[in-house]
Amino acid sequence: MNNKLDGFRHFCRRNSLFVIGSISVILILFTMTVGPSLCTHDPNAVKYSEKCISPCAEYPFGTDFSGRCVLCRVIYGAHISIGVALVVVVVGAFIGVTVGIVAGYAGGAVDSILMRLVEIMLSFPGTIFALAVLGTLGNGTINQIIALTVVRWAHYARLARGETLTVMNSDYIQAAQAIGNSRLRIIVSYIFPNIIGQIIVIATLSIGPVILAGAALSYLGLGAQIPSPEWGLMINGGKEYIRQAPWITLAPGMAAVLTVFAFNLLGEGIGDMIDPRLKEKAEAD
């Protein structure tokens, strides 16, 4: 028992970034899932008699220009902002890794075609491209997810292809072929497990930027629509009251900052844990 405790302490000391990061992310996810049921106010209940109240016991983060509880709205908004980012990263990473492994494994013409496609995607500035996609698809949360995924997958594809090529050159892949494994089996049980570490790190690190990109789109009015408590939208709504009631913009802004910070800590922590050299790669991306 004591031994286990010592081991755990040692683990925490060596991977302090990971431990802090995962605790903060767990707290945020906890707030996101359990928080709404603890809220005493309806996030969308308009009450003009109580508009722009500064933070107090009843409304810890004050109320906004329509008398809605800002804390409740931030908590409800977490669902949308973080949810969108998680979906984008998971779906984007899935598409990207599939494309990357196929390109790296097949090589030749398949590789060239897929990688040119990836390069075309990467040559557009991300936000502008997402704006263009939303411009054609129309507004809304689902379309926002699609637009961000379209922008993100290429990053993962390029990384996955590079890692696949490295792994493919290792002797154990040849050994795996020599004992008679099929191609699919080599991809699934040899290549994928050997590249997934780096993908997880990059994916976790990209959750933060995706949250910000999502908030930016909503701020511009292209993502979630009024009266949704999405953070970007809240900031946009509060910007006219920033002198009288700065808490309307500060609360969702700080929520976004803290969330991004937490996910980045976690990403860095996983990266340090898996491979100390990976940090440089992530910074270059």
Binding site: S170, D171, Y172, A175, I179, N181, Y190
Partner: peptide, 19 residues
């Protein structure tokens, strides 16, 4: 391959899957 014709690869250090 593997069943009737097999191999023992060179460089033991890298021929096993590390995971």
């Amino acid at each position: 391959r593997g069943k009737e014709i097999a191999c023992i690869p060179q460089s033991a250090a890298t021929s096993l899957n590390p995971l």
